[in-house]
Simulated scan of single mutants.
Amino acid sequence: MRDKADASIAAGEESLTLNPRRGAHRGELADQRALLSKLSPIVTQVVGMTRAAVDLYDPSLHEEPTVAAIAEQLRRAAHDVRLAVHLADVDPEPMTSAIPALTSPLVIAPPRSGNWILIGSITEDLRRIREELLDEE
């Protein structure tokens, strides 16, 4: 999807090259290009997290106390990504729905089982996503 979006923006920019009305649309395409640039590193991290989960999954993973905290952080990151692209549902009550949900980095204890590689990999990708989202603010 990221590659299709990039191709569509490039096609739009090329289409506007000789268009006399390009000024009206150039800003919109620039905004789309900037948004794509901000989201591309996050897409890369999510792909890495998915690949690590598929490659290193173990049925005992759900027993780790950190897994629930990681899931919560991922939910919060998804909310913040939706805010970045203005798709989040903003309810007037409470106004906190318009506030970024990632407030502090996740601090974890060492895993109790052999899942430390997967948990470490996902946690590092989550840290990178958090940094990218904080750069947007």
Rank of each mutant, 00 (worst) to 15 (best):
I70F: 01
V54M: 14
S40Y: 03
V85E: 12
H25R: 10
Q45T: 02
T44N: 11
V43Y: 12
I42D: 00
N19M: 10
A69W: 00
V54S: 14
A88I: 03
L29C: 05
V46A: 10
A34R: 08
H25N: 10
D31L: 15
R82F: 04
R76E: 11
K38N: 05
S97C: 04
V43W: 08
A98Q: 05
V46C: 11
I99S: 11
I70N: 01
E93K: 14
H62A: 12
D55T: 14
P41C: 10
S60I: 09
L83Y: 01
T17C: 11
L36V: 03
D55I: 11
A53N: 06
L16S: 06
P92S: 08
P100V: 06
V54R: 15
P20D: 06
L83E: 00
P20K: 04
V85C: 11
A53L: 14
G23M: 04
R22E: 12
Q73S: 08
P94S: 06
L106D: 02
V107P: 00
R33M: 03
Y57K: 03
Y57S: 06
G48I: 08
Q32T: 07
R26H: 15
A77E: 02
I42R: 01
Q32Y: 13
P92L: 09
R21E: 07
T50F: 12
P94H: 07
V43P: 01
P59A: 06
H25G: 10
G48E: 13
H25K: 05
V46P: 00
L16D: 03
P92Q: 10
G27D: 14
G23N: 05
K38G: 06
T103F: 12
L106R: 02
N19V: 08
R51L: 08
A78M: 08
T44K: 14
R82A: 04
E93T: 13
R21S: 05
R51C: 01
R33E: 02
V46K: 04
A101G: 10
E63W: 02
G48V: 07
D31E: 15
D80M: 01
V81H: 02
P92K: 11
P59T: 07
S104Q: 14
L102V: 13
D89H: 11
A34M: 08
S60H: 08
L61Y: 01
D55A: 15
L16Q: 07
V46N: 05
R21K: 00
A101Q: 12
R82D: 05
S40V: 09
T17L: 13
I99V: 15
G23Q: 02
S104Y: 07
R76W: 09
R76F: 11
E63F: 09
A77M: 04
E72W: 05
S15Q: 09
M49C: 03
V43Q: 11
P65S: 02
A24W: 15
T66K: 03
L39K: 04
L39C: 04
I70K: 00
L102W: 03
A101H: 08
P100I: 04
A34C: 06
L106V: 12
V107G: 01
A24E: 13
A24K: 09
S60G: 05
A71G: 04
L16N: 06
D58P: 00
A52S: 10
T66C: 08
Q73D: 09
E63K: 12
